[in-house]
Design a protein around this nucleic acid. Sequence first.
DNA 1: CTGAAAGCGCTTACAG
DNA 2: CTGAAAGCGCTTACAG
Lengths: 334, 334
Amino acid sequence: MHDVARRAQVSLKTVSRVVNREPGVSPALTHRVEEAVAALGYRPDDRARRLRSSARQTGTIGFVLIDVANPFFSSLLRGIEDVARAKGYLVLSGSTDGATEREEQLIDAFLERRVDGLIVVPSGQAVETLLREIDRGSPLVLVDIELDTDAPIDLVRSDHYGGARLATQHLIDRGHRHIAFLGDDRSVFSAEQRLRGYEDTMRSAGLDPSLEQKITGTHTADEWRTITHAIFRQPHPPTALFTAQNFASMGAVAALHDLEIQHEIAVVGFDDIDLADAVDPGLTVVPQRPRELGQRAAELIFSRIEGSDSDVVREIVPHAIVARGSGEIAPAAR
Amino acid sequence: MHDVARRAQVSLKTVSRVVNREPGVSPALTHRVEEAVAALGYRPDDRARRLRSSARQTGTIGFVLIDVANPFFSSLLRGIEDVARAKGYLVLSGSTDGATEREEQLIDAFLERRVDGLIVVPSGQAVETLLREIDRGSPLVLVDIELDTDAPIDLVRSDHYGGARLATQHLIDRGHRHIAFLGDDRSVFSAEQRLRGYEDTMRSAGLDPSLEQKITGTHTADEWRTITHAIFRQPHPPTALFTAQNFASMGAVAALHDLEIQHEIAVVGFDDIDLADAVDPGLTVVPQRPRELGQRAAELIFSRIEGSDSDVVREIVPHAIVARGSGEIAPAAR
DNA sequence: CTGAAAGCGCTTACAG
DNA sequence: CTGAAAGCGCTTACAG
């Protein structure tokens, strides 16, 4: 900037005025400054500008998630970006891989950079740390988690419980009485919710979920495939599966094809997957809407950034079922 | 910081020393400052710090991509993040949706924030703009594109041409002489490369690609499904498909299942997809390794940020074929 | 219409 | 071991 001012033979203030298109600079000076800017390749330093500026915002929001390589989270990020773009904001993001330590590091790093708002998909139980952060005055929105406390924290999440009820009821309605549950580790909030939805729905229908196979844990699609094979080697296998997680759906579908029982065993999955439409039968699912979740979370954070002091928002995005065939198979006569 | 200094009854410099763990502060003062920091919830402002600091870096790199919601790009982002994390860097990212204007906006915004390096997956032909940027001294790495110019720009990309040759040769080796090509619009560099690989391999085998169906364009999986139906309504359909794009693979597989010819028509896809393993037959593919591409791009940008002035790097990541069944089907006797 | 001085929150270079 | 002054690149508040 100094160089520009010297080259154009004007003061720093005049350069500032031209760069910011403030009115009231004579055409001659404007022209000289613009020439110097172009010649020197000058580009204002956004950080310095905002440091002194009355708009003390950084124009950046931070997004802490579990793993961007997972399409669920990358769609969330996309939803956030959609809204951020419209507001002229940029998005910093980072994956925690579910590690609390990494989560704290990321939040710290974002806060030191003075992000105007923070959207976090908490990994595990580190919510207390988050609660401390909000006291520091950074707007915070949590995604895909529930809080027992009535702490004043905004929240957006899928209705995992309701979605699981939908899926389970769908199978019960087709006559299934033995439905296995395959899902993520119970320490994951959404997994726990889905399991509860399954159990409650079973009980409402007069079925005893404690008699059914409920397999929970963090596994790859291949591991789920092996697990599903094991399920059907047992004497009294289920007639239907509720695969409450992406990889479980993939593994289970693969195993049913291996065993050539894909037309006999019903499956409803949680969350959509590629090719769900291409397999035979198509996979019936309760899809999530991660992009919309992200958009809602971003809208919320911006309303707080812009000063909204409305009551705490706890938004729960509902689900619907997409029937494609696998969920509509009736139990085989035995 | 001012408040901390006053509360601890020390100078700004002493606060700075304690916060940065510089040696040579008496335990008593250290204690007082730490107490004040905790009580006030003080967190240093990274921007101000770096403004004056000798390390003029921002500790941030920018990543401009087409669409994070696309797993290919989110895996790229993850690879970049892997390396950035190890270096203590944060990643700003933004989707262009292939719009040149948005691309320029993002690059501009990143540069105004003084990112230390820029990784870009160019959308379309706006490479000249990028060339201008590098003159401004920001390290730049391009991903998944080729440059005709010998401009000094580092580059990392998949070997689309070689991968397409592999896929096509695989089908020819199984006896196919009529292989249709389904791929993305030719304006996309990778799509063009894959088409060229297909054509050259056909010709090398004495086959005439101009006689085959080559369908290119940007379509959804459903549209590709419809297109594939149309292909097999024609009098002399191909015996094999090279689906050179994700959605094309999904749509084609779905259509072959619809028509119940999935065991007669061979398919090799470019890029892996969920459930590729679950369909019957499993989908033979030439997978990309986006996370590794991202890691390589990030390693390159950091070597430049750290001052490497080695020659231009143009790294081409090779492919291998993953045979799962669909690509090993012999042409049906007619 | 234009510019000199002060200040944003921190660090550097120096003095005591 | 500690601190007062100057400065990073810009904007604000003011004067001319």
